[in-house]
């Protein structure tokens, strides 16, 4: 098991070095992407701070708590972008037949499709934005304890499981339809709804965002746990949903692989 982990880690490391080299080749473009991400983060924080100064509560949460929901969203989304950026190009690989070449290789094709293109830009952005987030957290009036931090860290693993499952579902859809761009951006937009507590949305949407595309389990529940707030659903329901989604996504991926017809060749 450890040997397999080390084997795959070395492969991922190699892809990481390749991605780093690409960053240096396209310096101008990457600088613009990097600056754009910072402008987006800065502007969103600025607007949240402006709202914070002008409102007292939001859907039963204080304005400090509302900022934490955004920071947790930012953290989870940033991690998923670092590891799963390759998903955005997978539709192209299916259409032009590049995926054919991944199938006979001695690595799991799912691993290649999911993690084959680490985002170096987002890695650097992650380090800086996490520092900014920690500073902002230190200025907020919150009830955070060692136990809540531990619980939050464990639930983040569940969030990562859900993010992984959702990306595997996107990959599977790409094999069925040869189109992934629309689906992955739709996922991104759904995840953006998690910038605010999911409990604020209309009943039908709230249910969908907890159980059909479980953004709420991924962002709202960990944030609630971190701040020692009453949970919308228990940790066990959250973990059960995460596990079920991962199982479902792997089942769907296997079906998709069996149906793969090598569109281009």
């Amino acid at each position: 098991m450890l040997h397999r982990f080390s084997y795959y880690f070395h492969i991922w490391q190699r892809w990481g070095f390749n991605a780093l080299q690409e960053v240096f080749v396209n310096r101008g473009t990457n600088l613009l992407f990097f600056s754009g991400k910072f402008i987006r983060l800065a502007m969103t924080l600025l607007v949240l701070l402006l709202i914070k100064q002008n409102i007292k509560t939001f859907a039963g949460y204080t304005n400090d708590q509302m900022i934490v929901f955004f920071l947790v969203y930012q953290f989870v989304e940033n991690i998923s972008s670092i590891f799963y950026r390759g998903v955005y190009n997978f539709g192209r690989d299916v259409r032009n037949g590049q995926f054919d070449f991944d199938l006979p290789k001695p690595i799991n094709p799912l691993f290649r499709a999911l993690m084959g293109n680490p985002d170096i830009n987002d890695m650097v952005f992650f380090v800086i934005s996490s520092g900014v987030s920690l500073y902002i957290l230190s200025t907020l009036q919150l009830t955070i304890t060692a136990a809540s931090i531990l619980g939050f860290s464990l639930l983040l693993i569940n969030s990562f499981v859900i993010v992984t499952a959702l990306h595997i579902i996107v990959l599977s859809i790409a094999i069925f339809t040869t189109d992934v761009e629309g689906v992955i951006w739709m996922y991104r937009d759904l995840a953006r709804l998690g910038q605010f507590p999911i409990t604020a949305y209309l009943e039908l949407m709230r249910f969908s965002l907890f159980f059909i595309v479980p953004i709420g389990m991924m962002i709202t529940i960990p944030a609630q746990l971190l701040m020692n707030l009453p949970l919308s659903y228990s940790v066990w329901v959250s973990v059960l949903i995460g596990g079920s989604f991962l199982g479902f996504s792997l089942w769907l991926w296997n079906i998709a692989l069996k149906n793969y017809t090598s569109a281009s060749s």
């Binding site: 939001f58 339809t177 189109d179 689906v183 739709m186 937009d189 604020a200």
Partner: peptide, 23 residues
Amino acid sequence: TSLFMWRFRQFLSSVMSLTVWTV
């Protein structure tokens, strides 16, 4: 399908903004 997804994404962002400000 792409057209539907594009429009659905626009619809979602409107729902988010309207919900946030209504709340």
